[in-house]
Computed example of a mutant assay.
Amino acid sequence: MTAGANNLLAASDVETVFERLREAMPGRTKGAKGPKEQPDPFRSCISCMLSAQSLDRNTAAASDALFALATTPEEMLALDDAAIAAAIRPAGLYNMKTRNIRKFCEALIGEHGGVVPDTRERLLSLPGIGRKCADIVMSFTFDADVIAVDTHVHRVCNRIGITDAKTADKTAGQLEQRAPEWAHRDGHFWLIQLGKRICVARSPKCEICPVSDPCLWYAARQKEAKT
């Protein structure tokens, strides 16, 4: 293992990490659906917006309730704020999310004819859509070769040393530059499974981790144990 600048793995070790993950973790499944299993780009965007600071089960409940009322931007704008807020209450921050949903729908109709764009730049131009949401929609809904960064991916990448960033957006930027191109398609799926199964937030299972030997966090932990 060799370290690059600022507590980053060298490029050769980053390649090794992704090669190991490709062997050990499942990749993109055929016909992967949009965020939170939504069937179209519009509902994928809305559900992703609702997921901010919300548990998966609460996001699902809010999404189901809202989409029982409206499934298009036009139908959504026909609802009043009270109806939207009541439906999405389980996801929390419902007043702010209601405003974002309305602004998103207005911009989607006004600027894109009601059709969700399929590029990061244009997705980011829409109210309520940040880098994480844009990349998740691109990856899951539009089948783009993008490594979307959620909580698990952010933790894993910075713990291993693939990236060295304080925020998920900065992790996404570094990851886009440092991950080998061949890993961009399935990298999100490999990293998220590693984060859920092994490299968990508390008490990571380093003894069974396929990338423990190149991992900078594990190396530091081992060094501390010897002192």
Rank of each mutant, 00 (worst) to 15 (best):
A85L: 05
C215P: 03
A148K: 10
P41Y: 10
A148H: 04
E121S: 11
D135R: 12
V211G: 02
L79A: 03
F140E: 11
L175P: 10
Q38Y: 06
N58L: 09
I136H: 13
R197L: 12
N158C: 06
T171S: 11
A172H: 08
G4I: 09
E75V: 00
E176K: 14
I129R: 07
S139A: 14
L66S: 04
K223C: 01
P73V: 04
T227W: 00
W217C: 11
L194N: 04
F140M: 15
C206V: 06
E106I: 08
A11P: 04
K30V: 14
M25G: 02
P210M: 02
C157E: 03
Y218F: 15
L124E: 11
D143Q: 14
N158A: 07
T16Y: 00
L194S: 05
R131K: 15
K196M: 15
E74Q: 11
A68K: 13
G187R: 06
A85D: 07
A11H: 08
M96K: 13
A201E: 13
Q193H: 15
Q53F: 08
A24P: 01
C215W: 05
G4H: 05
T2H: 12
D56K: 05
L123C: 08
T171Q: 09
E111M: 08
I160K: 00
R28Y: 09
D169V: 13
T16G: 01
E37L: 12
S125G: 15
C199M: 11
C48R: 07
D135H: 11
G161P: 01
E15L: 09
K132H: 11
Q53T: 07
V146T: 14
H184E: 02
A183M: 06
N100D: 08
F104D: 02
K97F: 04
A91M: 06
G31W: 10
T151P: 04
P180K: 03
S139R: 13
I136C: 15
C206I: 08
C199S: 10
E74H: 06
A24R: 09
